[in-house]
Write a protein that binds this DNA or RNA. Structure first.
Ligand SMILES: Nc1nc2c(ncn2[C@H]2C[C@H](O)[C@@H](COP(=O)(O)OP(=O)(O)OP(=O)(O)O)O2)c(=O)[nH]1
Ligand SMILES: [Mg+2]
Ligand SMILES: [Mg+2]
Ligand SMILES: [Zn+2]
Length: 566
DNA sequence: GCCGTTTTCGGCCCGACTGTTTTCAGTCG
C-alpha cells in the first residue's frame, strides 16, 4: 500500500505547486500520476525493483526518480522545502468551494492569510472584498463555502444514493414533462461512494428545466442556475448537479457527464490526435457533427468499442476498447443465488421460508442461509444443536417449496487461533460453509485466514478485509497472501454486498481475478429487503471487470454444494 | 512533468456559470 502513500504525496505536491503558480500541466502531471498510483493493483515496490516504473502511464524520468527516492527514504527531497514553506492549514483552504489557488495565493500574498481564522478575519473586516478581481458577491460566496467546508460532509454510500436519485428524478418529472433523463457521474459508474448526485436531462427547455430543479422542495441552497445546468445543496446537505442538453445530444452528454474525468480527458485526447473534437454536444470533425445521439455512436465514431459505465475509470479500458476487447461483464440476471443470508435464527429478522420465496421472486434458483456460529454471541450465534435443527427445517422446506432450493449454510467464526468455531463433523453436514473474522482484527489475521482456508469444508471467506466504508479501516491483513492461498486451495473470496462493506472492493476484485481467485457475492442480508443489495455486489464485480465465469453465484446449486471437497 | 500512427519540442479536454469585466479570469463540472 506504499503506492497510496506516494499518490497522496504527489497530490500534496500538485496542490503546493498550483498554489505557487506553477505551470498547470506540470500540476496536472502530478495529479494524473497520483490517481494512477492509487488505482494500481500491483505492488509498487515490486514494480520499482524490477525496473518497470516507466511503464506506468504518466511516470517519466523525474517522477520515477521521486518514487524510487520515496521508497528508499520516505522523502522527495526536491519538494521538501516547498512542502514546509506552504503548510497544510494553508493548502486545505483550497478545499473551500469558491476558493481556488489564485484567490488563495492573492489573499496569502497581500493579506497574509495563512489559515482559516485569518481568512475569516479578512472576510469580516472587508479587506478580502477590496482585492483586485474580488468583490462583495465573491466574498459572500466564499463565506457560504466556508460553512459547507466546515460541515465536512462525507461522500454518500452508493446504496443510499441510488434511492435518492430515484426520488429526485421523480420530482423533476412531476414538475416538467421529461422523456430523456438518466443518472450520471460516479453514481452511474456505481462507485462505492459518490461525492454528489449527477443527473442528465435531454430537453430543448434548459432554462425552464433548471428552474424546476432549483425550486424542488428539497433545495436548501442554490449554487448555480444557468441555461444548461444547475447545482443545489439539499436539505440533507448533499449536492445535486443537473445538466440539460438538447435531445439530439443526449448520448454525447451522457458520455461526458458519466465520466470519469480521467476517462473523458483520455478519450478527448485520443479524439483530438485523430482529428476529432469531443464535447457534451457531440463528436465533431471540423464543423461537422459525426455522432451524439447515443453513447454507442460516440465511442464507435472514434474507433472504440462501447463499454459499460462501471469500467470508465481510465484503468486501461480505453486501450481494451481500441482492440475491441471489452469483456462481457457479469449481470444481475446471471446471478442464480445469494451466498450469504441471515435468518431470524441468528441476528437476522426474516423467516427462512420468506427469504426463499423472495429469492424465487428474484429469479434465483437457490439461496444459502448462513447464520452465525456459537462464538458470535453479539450476533446471537447458534450452538451446534440449533444448527442441526435449522438443517432439518431447510430439508423440510425444500420438500415443500417449488422452484427454489434452500442451501443450509453457516457463517462460521474464524477464532483467534485460526480454527473454526464448529467441528468438521458438523461442517460436513452443511451445504455451504462461509468463514469470517469477527474478533481479533489485529491479531494474526493473515495466518488465521490461511489456516481456515486449509479446511476443505470452508468454501468462502466473507468480507476479507473487514473494512467499513463509514467507520473502520479493516483488519491488519496481508490481502495478497490471502488471495494467493485462496487461489491455491480453490477457496472463493466474498464480495460482501452490504453498502457499508463492499468488501472485497473493485480494485481488490480486479487483483483477485488476476491471481486466479474465484469471487462469491453475498448480500449479508439481515432482512428480506436487504436481498436487494445484490445489485451493489454485482456492481463491484463489474467494476472489477468480472465476467459470469469469475463469479460462483452463476453456478448451479449442485456445484455450489460440491466444490473443494475433501 | 510527460509524451510521440503528424512531433524529442510544443503541445497537454472542453465548456458552463459567476462576477467584475469592458473582453475575461477564476472556479468548477
Ligand atoms: N471533460 C471533462 N469532464 C469532466 C470534468 N470534470 C468532471 N467531468 C464530468 C465527468 C464526471 O463524472 C462528471 C460529474 O462530475 P463530478 O465532479 O460530479 O465527478 P464524479 O461524479 O465522477 O465523482 P464524484 O463522486 O461526484 O466525486 O462530469 C473535466 O474536467 N473534464
Ligand atoms: Mg458526481
Ligand atoms: Mg457533480
Ligand atoms: Zn454475515
Amino acid at each position: 500500500m506504499k503506492s497510496k502513500e506516494i499518490a497522496h504525496r504527489f497530490d500534496q505536491i500538485a496542490d503546493v505547486l498550483e498554489f505557487l503558480g506553477e505551470n498547470q500541466f506540470k500540476v496536472g502531471a502530478y495529479r494524473k500520476v497520483a490517481r494512477t498510483l492509487s488505482d494500481l493493483t500491483e505492488d509498487i515496490e515490486v514494480i520499482s525493483r524490477e525496473g518497470r516504473l516507466r511503464e506506468i502511464p504518466g511516470v517519466g524520468e523525474g517522477i520515477a526518480q521521486h518514487i524510487i527516492e520515496y521508497l528508499d527514504t520516505g522523502k522527495i527531497s526536491k519538494y521538501e522545502e516547498e512542502l514546509k514553506r506552504v503548510p497544510p492549514e494553508l493548502i486545505q483552504l483550497m478545499n473551500i468551494p469558491g476558493m481556488g489557488p489564485k484567490t488563495l495565493a492573492l489573499a496569502n500574498k497581500t493579506l497574509k492569510v495563512r489559515n482559516l481564522a485569518d481568512l475569516k478575519r479578512v472576510i469580516e473586516d472587508g479587506s478580502l472584498a477590496g482585492l483586485p478581481g474580488l468583490g462583495e458577491k465573491k466574498v459572500e460566496n466564499i463565506r457560504k463555502g466556508i460553512a459547507r467546508f466546515e460541515a465536512v460532509k462525507e461522500r454518500i454510500p452508493l446504496g443510499l444514493a441510488l434511492p435518492l436519485v430515484e426520488t429526485i428524478m421523480a420530482g423533476l418529472k412531476k414538475g416538467f414533462k421529461i422523456t430523456m433523463i438518466s443518472p450520471a457521474g460516479s453514481l452511474r459508474r456505481m462507485r462505492e461512494t459518490v461525492g454528489d448526485i449527477d443527473i442528465l436531462v435531454g430537453s430543448s427547455q434548459g432554462k425552464k428545466m433548471v428552474e424546476v430543479f432549483t425550486h424542488l422542495p428539497m433545495v436548501k441552497e442554490i449554487l448555480a442556475a444557468g441555461e444548461t445546468k444547475g447545482s443545489i445543496i439539499s436539505d440533507e446537505g448533499f449536492q445535486v448537479d443537473l445538466r440539460v442538453v438538447p435531445e439530439k445530444a443526449f448520448g454525447a452528454a451522457l458520455q461526458y457527464f458519466t465520466g470519469s474525468q480521467a476517462h473523458n480527458v483520455k478519450l478527448r485526447g485520443i479524439a483530438q490526435k485523430t482529428g476529432f473534437k469531443v464535447n457534451e454536444y457531440g463528436v465533431f470533425r471540423g464543423e461537422k457533427l459525426v455522432a451524439g445521439k447515443t453513447e454507442e455512436e460516440v465511442y464507435e465514431s472514434l474507433g472504440l468499442q462501447y463499454m459499460p459505465p462501471e469500467m470508465r475509470e481510465d484503468r486501461g479500458e480505453i486501450e481494451l476498447a481500441r482492440e475491441g476487447k471489452i469483456p462481457r461483464l457479469v449481470e444481475v440476471s446471471d446471478i442464480r443465488g445469494d451466498l450469504h443470508v441471515h435468518s431470524r435464527h441468528s441476528d437476522g429478522t426474516g423467516e427462512i421460508e420468506d427469504i426463499a420465496k423472495k429469492a424465487k421472486e428474484k429469479g434465483y434458483q437457490w439461496i444459502a442461509i448462513c447464520d452465525h456460529s456459537k462464538s458470535a454471541k453479539y450476533a446471537r450465534g447458534l450452538p451446534e444443536s440449533e444448527v442441526l435443527k435449522v438443517i432439518e427445517e431447510i430439508e423440510e422446506l425444500n420438500g415443500k417449496l417449488k422452484g427454489i432450493r434452500v442451501l443450509a449454510g453457516v457463517e462460521v467464526d474464524i477464532l483467534t487461533d485460526g480454527s473454526l468455531d464448529f467441528p468438521d463433523r458438523l461442517l460436513k453436514k452443511l451445504d455451504l460453509v462461509v468463514g469470517a473474522i469477527h474478533q481479533g482484527f489485529k491479531k494474526d489475521v493473515t495466518r488465521r485466514m490461511i489456516r481456515a482456508m486449509e479446511n476443505p469444508y470452508l468454501k468462502i471467506i466473507a468480507h476479507p478485509t473487514g473494512r467499513l466504508i463509514s467507520s473502520r479501516e479493516g483488519y491488519e491483513v496481508d490481502i495478497d497472501a490471502v488471495m494467493a492461498k485462496a487461489a491455491e486451495t480453490g477457496t472463493a473470496l466474498e464480495i460482501n454486498a452490504h453498502y457499508d462493506r463492499l468488501d472485497l472492493d473493485d480494485l481488490n476484485v480486479m487483483k483477485a481475478k488476476k491471481k486466479g481467485v474465484k469471487l462469491a457475492i453475498g448480500t449479508d442480508a439481515h432482512s428480506v429487503g436487504m436481498l436487494e443489495y445484490m445489485r451493489l455486489g454485482v456492481a463491484v464485480a463489474r467494476r472489477g471487470w468480472l465476467g459470469p465465469e469469475d463469479i460462483i453465484n452463476t453456478w448451479s446449486a449442485e456445484k455450489i454444494k460440491g466444490w473443494k471437497k475433501a
